[in-house]
Design a protein around this nucleic acid. Structure first.
Length: 173
DNA sequence: CCCTGATTCGC
DNA sequence: GCGAATCAGG
């Protein structure tokens, strides 16, 4: 992917808004977070001083000279764009979950919801529970974010709510 | 292990 | 100039 003026502008905008390099890379598509960070440096954009998340502000001593650089395969064939449309998938799940959630909460008000990690949409990964909590239109909206086993989109608790068979749903009351 | 940004340096 | 590999840290 080329760093077109448009893409560079978007990079500047998102970076100034405090998005992480990986988040920006996801939105731009076709680039890795390393590419984003590298570009940020080349553009001499202000780093993250010591803001949220994590920062390695301290001046890096140095690295062993003559490092074990990249393996120089033939000539590195394809750099796969690992870019994912994270939003699309999540939104789809959101809708599905909403239907189930509505039914469940209408019949069970005494459920004890486990502590959530209050993750932002952009913080979700394949291993975090994507159970939405709160009103998506409001500020306090977040996702459960607890660890989800295997390839499940939900943690063990929310997976039960999401996948509860209709038959069991009655009896389980 | 998940993530973060920072740096180096072959290309 | 680009960005993967690597480092350093939360």
């Amino acid at each position: 992917m080329n760093w077109t003026d448009e893409r560079v502008e978007k990079l500047k905008k998102l970076w100034s808004e405090g998005l992480s390099a990986s988040q920006i890379a996801a939105q731009l598509g076709g680039v890795s977070r390393n590419a984003v960070i590298g570009k940020v440096h080349r553009l001499s954009l202000p780093g993250r001083a010591k803001a949220g998340g994590s920062t390695t502000t301290a001046a890096r001593p140095k690295r062993p000279t003559s490092a074990p650089r990249a393996p120089n395969y033939a000539s590195r064939v394809s750099t796969r764009p690992v870019a994912r449309a994270a939003g699309a998938v999540v939104l789809k799940e959101e809708i599905e979950v909403d239907l189930v959630a509505e039914q469940d909460f209408s019949t069970r008000t005494d459920v004890v919801v486990p502590m959530s990690r209050r993750l932002e949409l952009t913080q979700l990964t394949e291993r975090t529970c994507k159970w939405p909590i709160g009103d998506p239109l409001k500020e306090e909206f977040h996702f459960c974010g607890n660890d989800s086993p295997e390839a499940s989109p939900y943690c063990t608790f929310h997976a039960r709510l999401a996948y509860q068979p209709s038959g069991e749903r009655r009896r389980a009351r």
